[in-house]
Amino acid sequence: MTSTTTPTVPFSGIWPALLTPLDAQHNIDIPAMARHALALLARGCTGITPFGTTGEGPSFTVEERIRAIDGLVTAGVPAERILVSTSCAALPDVVILTRHALQIGAHGCLMLPPFFLKGVPDQGVIDSFRWVIDTVNDARLRIYLYHIPQVSGVALSHHVIDTLKKLYPSTIVGIKDSGCQREPSVATAQAFMPGVMVYVGNEPDLQTMGRLGSQGAVSGVANITPQLVQRLVRDFDQAGAEADQARVLQFLKILGGYGLTSAFKGMMARLTGEPGWMRVRPPLVQLSDAEYQRLCAELEVFKLDPKKD
């Protein structure tokens, strides 16, 4: 299958899958979230992606998410540099969040298929996206399809992607591929790029996907090492790229010893000196004291360099 639609490259570079800091009551700490977002933009990120998987998106209500996005904009994060994850299990909630993203002038919307019911046929996935797009009914809408079946339980097949792109050629502009399996990611890129840009969600694939023409990434790792990820997107075949790729793999090996979001937040606590970053909303569990100390020791060995990483 080869896309014959007009090429569309809505963004390039790094859009970190933004972490969501919490206060002592486990509500969103909007000032801390804004500081983190602005710091990432200052370190060269093109934009940010709040309330995805790394950002614990499904753990927050529609109202909480709207308040936080408004808070980011009020704090100085340009709306056009926000790719809002509007994913929810209930389609009317997706519509509310999507309309809000359009209202503030966000860059676009990252959208999962409905993810509670499993085993739904392709037609059900197609119908769900159609329901949202037709209900929102706004020519400004730009959707990045979010493929993470190991978490959502609902895959985006080539048939789904192809059908939606043909039905909504100016709305479906990209795919965040976080399936974490290189062969299917390569097959998707070969099938749909350049008409639908495939953005890397699995950092070990940055070089491979860059060579196929991928021009960006929505990356959880970029919360901590934005420059490192950026180099692998921009300079995937330049001198030093192999060393950068090895460093990413070393970093991921550290993360693999813990719950992913809890580990990222532990790293933020260590790097910022703000213990509140440790908090996660249930059902996630924050690092124990012993885990945190072990993580800090591993970071010392890694020798994280904020000027280079």
Rank of each mutant, 00 (worst) to 15 (best):
D122F: 05
Q103P: 00
R35V: 04
R211H: 12
G71E: 05
P113C: 05
G55R: 02
L299Y: 01
E274Y: 01
G71H: 08
R182D: 09
F116L: 14
L271S: 08
M111S: 02
R81S: 01
L72H: 11
M197W: 06
T61Q: 08
G105R: 04
E183L: 14
H26A: 11
V248S: 05
M193R: 13
Q250F: 06
G210Y: 08
P114H: 05
A243Q: 13
V154E: 12
I175E: 05
V94R: 01
T8G: 05
S288D: 06
C180A: 14
E291Y: 02
H100N: 11
D305Q: 02
Q181V: 15
I82Y: 06
Y258M: 03
S157V: 08
T98L: 09
L228H: 07
F115P: 05
S85I: 03
F60P: 09
C45V: 05
S128D: 14
C109W: 02
V280I: 01
G55N: 03
R142G: 08
P92D: 01
V94K: 04
Q215L: 15
D305T: 00
C45T: 13
P306N: 07
G259L: 03
S12I: 09
W131I: 01
G210P: 00
A79I: 02
L287E: 01
A217C: 10
D162Y: 07
L164Y: 00
G124R: 02
P283I: 03
P21C: 03
A39W: 13
P7I: 15
R67W: 02
T171H: 13
L212R: 08
G47W: 01
C45P: 10
P194I: 03
G216F: 04
Q190E: 13
L72F: 06
P282Q: 00
D122V: 01
R142K: 15
T135E: 15
A239E: 02
Q230H: 08
A263M: 00
G201K: 04
I104V: 14
R35A: 14
H36S: 10
Q103W: 05
A89P: 07
R67T: 11
F302T: 11
D309I: 04
A89C: 11
V221L: 11
L156T: 07
I66K: 10
A32G: 04
R294V: 09
K166F: 08
F51E: 12
N202V: 06
T208P: 00
R182H: 10
M209W: 04
S12T: 15
L110I: 03
D134A: 15
V200W: 14
Q250I: 01
G220F: 07
D177T: 02
Q150G: 03
M209Q: 08
V9S: 11
L206C: 04
Q103F: 07
P275F: 00
T163W: 00
I30D: 06
M268P: 06
Q190N: 10
F129L: 10
L255H: 08
G153L: 13
I148R: 04
S87T: 12
S219P: 08
R231Q: 10
G179H: 05
Q150M: 14
G153M: 12
E63N: 12
L41D: 05
